[in-house]
Structure formats: C-alpha cells, structure tokens
Amino acid sequence: MFSWGNFISQCFNGLVLGALLALISSGLTIIYGTLGVLNLAHGAMFMLGGYAGWVAYTQTGSFIVAIMAGALFVMLVGVVTERLIIRHFYARPAEDQLLVTFGLGIVFVETVRFFFGSLSKTVPPPALLSGITPLGFMVYPTYRLALLGIVTVALLVLYFILYRTRIGMIVRAGIEDAVMVDSLGINIQKVFMLVFGIGAMAAGFAGIVNAPVVAIAPDVGDAILVQTFVVVVIGGVGSFGGAVLGGLIAGQIISLTSMIDPAYSYVMLFVAMTLVLVLRPYGLLGTAGRE
C-alpha cells in the first residue's frame, strides 16, 4: 500500500491544511492572549467569512473582491460584537465569556442558515488558479498550491502587524500585562476592539480563501473550531508562533495518519495533544503566565 508518491502528496495536503489551521488558530490565540477571552464563536467567524465572500462573488464575479469582502465583513462583525457584547464580559468570569461566545456562535450559524439555507455554496477559484499543476512526482490542484502561498502571505502580514507596528507592540504588551498597558495611557478599549477585529478577520479570511476548496455550509466552522483548540493547546495558548507551529504539526498528523487509515487521523491528532499536555503542559511554545 505504501508509496512515496502518496506520502509526498499527503505531506502536501498536510501542509495546506496545516497552514490554514495556523491562520485560524493565530486569530483565536491573538484574541485570547490580548483580551483573555476564548472566542467559541471563532468557527462561526470562519463560516461567516466564506458566506460574505460568496455573496460578494455572486454580485461581482471577482475572487479578489470576494476575499476582501470576506475578510472585512468578518472584521466588522468582530468589532461590532466586541463593542456590543464582549466588552461587557471582560470583568465577568471566564465561564461567562465562554457561554456568551458559544451562544453567539450558534446565533451566527443559524442566522446564516435562515438567510441562505442549508444548501452548500461554492466559490470557484479564479480561472488562473483552477486546474491541476503537474509537479513531476504528482499532480496537485493549482488552487491548493496557491492557497498555501496565500495563507503564508497572510501569516506574514499578521506577523508584521504584531511584531513590526506600534499596534502590534501594544498588543504584545497587552498579552504580557493588560494593566500595565492601561497605565501607560493607551486607550486599551480601542486596542481591544481592534484586536478582536483582527483576530476575527484572520478567521474570516481563512473562511473565504478555503471556500474554493471546501464548499461552504452553515456548520462548516464547527469542526474547524475543535481542531483550532487542539492546535492552540499543542502550540501554547496566546503564542503566535505556537499557533503556527501547532497548525503545521496538526496538518501533518491528520494527513499522514490518513495514508494508513483516515478513520484514525483525528484520534491521532488528539493523542498528540495528550502527549504535549503530559510532557509540556503549557504547549510547545507557551509559557506558564496565562491560564
């Protein structure tokens, strides 16, 4: 059964999946790291990105517009949600935050179902990127190759925002100590709103760029959410690098196990998470600071 062609193809699958998980997870981890809120509606944000993009695509026929619409719409949803609801939960127990974001996730999913039905929607890849690319040892869908590039660029942009700009500096300082940032006279409220928006945008962006690969449906984000948790736990909560590393590892575990028996791929993913928890309770790149 084993063949090198299959092995390399599966590694590629893992890389694409891993990059995508890395992007979604980094959104979750930035929000959590800065605001201390674990956003259980993150999977729904991923789904919203796909739908917003799909609507834009059907109106304009442009994939670029679809991507922008997906990312910006979800950012807007994030900002509005933060302003209207999440903001009032910073002072409340972590459990309340989990409950309200969990509820919001259901509301987002069911609202989309209400307006667009359960029928899955497809956003075709741009003509330039559709079709198959022969790589010598295998053929691979062109768009999936492009997706790898798109997500890598997105992650780099996110990295740049976090590590090379003033807002990023504040965000990272906020991860260390929100009180301190507050005392520096920075308008932490605005920063929080922006962070929630950026984190949501990462999910929304991932949602639309993934739409040509997996058709979108209202519940497309549910499975993603759980996988994102695993990624974040493996990589370390609140760590951007951890999210990326965790995503890549998770992608490879899922793909390579699939080669032997796809039924065990998710089981193996969770086994890996268990191992990490036993050996490095704070995740591969996490620190003991945040709980």
């Binding site: 674990l38 972590a94 989990l98 974040v232 909560v237 969770f270 928890l277 309770p281 709980e291």
Partner: peptide, 23 residues
C-alpha cells in the same frame, strides 16, 4: 489529564478529549 490545567485551558482540553471519544 485535563485537571493538569484550569480555566479556559481546562475547557479546551475537555472539548478535545470528548471529541476523541466521539471519533
């Protein structure tokens, strides 16, 4: 396993472990 951590981490680990059982 799960009680090695608390708070949000604990919640995430319980989600993940329950998913293992599901699979």
């Amino acid at each position: 396993l799960a009680l090695r951590r608390t708070g949000i981490y604990f919640a995430m680990i319980t989600v993940a472990i329950a998913e293992v059982f599901f699979f």
